[in-house]
Amino acid sequence: MTETLATLDIDIDIDLAPVVAEQPDELLFATVSGAHLYGFPSRDSDVDLRGVHLLPTAELIGLREPEETRSRMWDRDGVELDLVTHDLRKFVRLMLRRNGYVLEQLLSPLVVHTTDAHRELAALAPGVLTRHHAHHYRGFAATQWRLFQKTGELKPLLYTFRVLLTGIHLMRSGEVQAHLPTLAGETDAPAYLPDLVAAKAEHEHGAADVDHARVESDVERLHGVLDEAQALSALADAPAAYDALHDLVVRVRLTGVDGFEG
């Protein structure tokens, strides 16, 4: 069973349902990621759509290389759209590689299109979470911090704080939480984060009006908090859902998205 949700609880002045209908292969899901998911979109932010498509079996068993990842950017009704989808098998393999980014897409509450297969895949997500996902968030934070040091822009600074706090929250709770305004309410978050989020709403690429020494100190502190949370985490060392995910991929491939029943 498929379901398209044309109205999302975010400020996007475009109907996204037709975008789903235009895709060449069946979609298991499409969600909104990026700044809208993270809770700090600007007036001129693009809309990041992420999802999973299902390639026909013939495209996987023939001689030609399958199009496992599709990426497209275009303007629709004055809104810049960025769409990336992976074939189901590739997406599941990414899930099994301590990749927090794809889990955020899978579990995004900003759903454009969903199916029974999407819901079953999301239900299996806890079975791939490990304490080693901290490495993903630690590395992402380091990349964004270097970008902030180079440009001085607010966007990479917010990304730095977002991924560190997401990693800490995941290590402690086993929950993937990507929404910075929610994470800003937690004990370890700097008190000035809501002000930075509000400033980001005005300009996508504006400069960060911050005390650089203070934010550097807070970033270093949060790295330490993440290290400690990882060491104390109750999450497993390795994914436990490999067999269940394998079974899901086979069943969806054999039946198609519309014929799948969980």
Rank of each mutant, 00 (worst) to 15 (best):
I14L: 14
A231Y: 08
S42T: 04
A236K: 09
V79L: 07
V250G: 03
A229Q: 07
G152Y: 08
R146V: 13
T130K: 06
S71M: 04
D9T: 12
S71Y: 09
E175P: 00
G167K: 04
A142Q: 06
R98C: 14
V52D: 02
D247K: 08
A191F: 06
F29P: 04
P109W: 09
T69G: 00
E204G: 05
A134C: 08
F91C: 10
S42V: 02
V92K: 06
A6I: 04
F91E: 10
I10G: 07
D195R: 15
G259S: 08
L235F: 11
A201V: 10
G259W: 08
E68M: 06
S217D: 08
R251M: 04
L222P: 04
S42N: 07
D247A: 15
I12F: 03
D77A: 15
T182Y: 05
W74T: 01
A123K: 02
T143H: 13
E80W: 08
E22F: 07
L8E: 02
G39A: 10
M171A: 13
V252G: 05
L147V: 14
E186R: 14
G152I: 09
L60Y: 05
R98L: 07
Q105K: 02
V252N: 01
L124Y: 03
L103A: 02
Y137C: 09
A141P: 09
V219L: 03
E220T: 12
A244L: 11
D209L: 14
P41L: 11
R50G: 14
